[in-house]
Computed example of a mutant assay.
Amino acid sequence: MADERLDEAEMLTLTYVREENLGGGGDYLLETYKGDLKNHKLWLCGVTEFVFKHLPERIYFREV
């Protein structure tokens, strides 16, 4: 996972920053996965902000 583009990576896009009373963290959207349309919404907790030192607009990830 990285907040900068990785070769052959999938991408999560930040759609909403949650307030602490709503659990903190951010809501992300996985539009496609391995070329297939998914439009999967997911919440990533405040640990994401701890790891990256902010909530990235985009998070890139790939299988190793």
Score class of each variant (00 low, 15 high):
33 Y>E: 03
41 K>G: 10
26 G>R: 06
2 A>Q: 12
46 G>Y: 00
45 C>G: 13
33 Y>S: 05
22 L>R: 13
13 T>Y: 14
53 K>E: 01
39 N>F: 07
29 L>I: 13
16 Y>V: 03
61 F>E: 07
51 V>Q: 02
48 T>W: 02
16 Y>T: 12
4 E>M: 01
18 R>N: 15
28 Y>S: 02
40 H>N: 05
25 G>D: 10
39 N>C: 06
45 C>P: 15
22 L>S: 12
37 L>Q: 06
42 L>Q: 07
50 F>Y: 06
17 V>A: 04
19 E>H: 08
39 N>M: 05
4 E>C: 00
47 V>Q: 02
37 L>W: 09
21 N>E: 13
28 Y>L: 02
7 D>A: 15
49 E>C: 04
52 F>C: 00
55 L>C: 01
24 G>Q: 05
50 F>E: 08
17 V>T: 15
15 T>G: 12
29 L>S: 12
43 W>P: 02
32 T>A: 14
61 F>W: 10
37 L>P: 13
34 K>H: 11
53 K>G: 10
5 R>H: 10
44 L>G: 04
57 E>I: 03
28 Y>G: 00
9 A>T: 12
59 I>K: 07
5 R>N: 12
35 G>D: 11
64 V>T: 11
21 N>M: 05
21 N>H: 13
25 G>N: 05
36 D>C: 04
7 D>N: 15
61 F>R: 09
49 E>T: 00
3 D>R: 04
44 L>R: 01
53 K>M: 00
36 D>H: 12
10 E>V: 05
3 D>K: 10
48 T>V: 09
19 E>G: 09
12 L>Q: 12
36 D>V: 10
56 P>W: 04
43 W>L: 03
28 Y>R: 03
64 V>S: 11
8 E>Q: 14
14 L>A: 09
9 A>R: 09
26 G>K: 05
41 K>E: 12
31 E>S: 10
28 Y>Q: 04
62 R>G: 07
45 C>A: 09
27 D>Y: 10
48 T>K: 03
1 M>R: 02
57 E>M: 07
31 E>H: 11
25 G>M: 08
46 G>W: 01
10 E>H: 14
32 T>R: 13
18 R>S: 03
51 V>S: 00
43 W>T: 04
1 M>H: 03
56 P>H: 01
34 K>M: 04
60 Y>H: 08
44 L>Y: 03
1 M>L: 04
24 G>E: 02
64 V>I: 11
13 T>I: 08
2 A>P: 01
43 W>V: 02
22 L>A: 12
37 L>Y: 11
63 E>A: 07
41 K>W: 09
26 G>P: 11
60 Y>N: 01
25 G>I: 09
5 R>V: 15
58 R>N: 14
18 R>D: 11
57 E>P: 03
13 T>K: 15
50 F>S: 11
50 F>H: 10
33 Y>D: 02
